[in-house]
């Protein structure tokens, strides 16, 4: 294969062809590399088990009314302040909402019933979490779509660039070089 690279060192280009990685590790000898990777591989189950245990059962048991109330209050906007939830704010409106949530939970309403009561009284925008459907759904979908698009574009450009044949100098290029060299 002739290499019409412009640079003085054609070697790196050959080295960076796809497959270079496998070639490099392959020459180390399969069994040896496995042994050297062993400490790394051992970590995988350890981390997995630890995270599994950690992600599992919260020690608090079934949610108490107070915790349920705090949870709902955290999802509700303080109607009179900027950027805070009803759980965090000491504005009188928030204090009233907290008391109302607690009262309804004590009366045996489910979390969803309490939420729909609040929506009925203050409007949909009392909830801090936008809906997953309708116009509000866009706020969830757009970033995901954007990310996928961006990642796709990135992969595509990378792949196209890599698959590009080595650039050869066109007649135009040669003319430019000659010109620049001052003939």
């Amino acid at each position: 294969m002739t290499e019409p690279t412009p640079g003085p060192e054609p070697a790196p280009v050959a080295e960076s062809r796809p497959g270079g990685l496998d070639a490099a590790t392959g020459t180390d000898g399969g069994g040896g590399s496995l042994r050297r990777w062993l400490p790394f591989l051992l970590l995988v189950p350890v981390v997995t088990i630890a995270l599994f245990v950690g992600a599992g059962g919260d020690d608090a048991g079934p949610p108490t009314p107070a915790r349920r109330a705090a949870g709902i209050a955290g999802e509700v906007r303080c109607p009179t302040c900027e950027g805070l939830s009803a759980a965090e704010s000491e504005a009188s409106a928030s204090v009233a909402i907290r008391a109302e949530i607690r009262r309804r939970i004590d009366e045996g309403e489910t979390d969803d019933e309490v939420r729909s009561f609040l929506v009925g009284r203050y409007g949909r925008d009392i909830l801090l979490t936008p809906e997953g459907s309708g116009v509000a759904g866009l706020v969830w979908a757009l970033p995901v779509a954007g990310f996928v698009l961006g990642a796709g574009l990135l992969v595509l450009t990378m792949r196209r660039r890599r698959d590009q044949p080595l650039r050869t100098a066109s007649a135009e290029d040669r003319r430019l070089v000659e010109q620049a060299m001052g003939r």
Partner: peptide, 14 residues
């Protein structure tokens, strides 16, 4: 003309 609140739970989750 729709009023929508995008608050902390949204940002945390995303």
């Amino acid at each position: 003309g729709e009023r929508i609140t995008v608050g902390r739970p949204y940002f945390d989750r995303m």
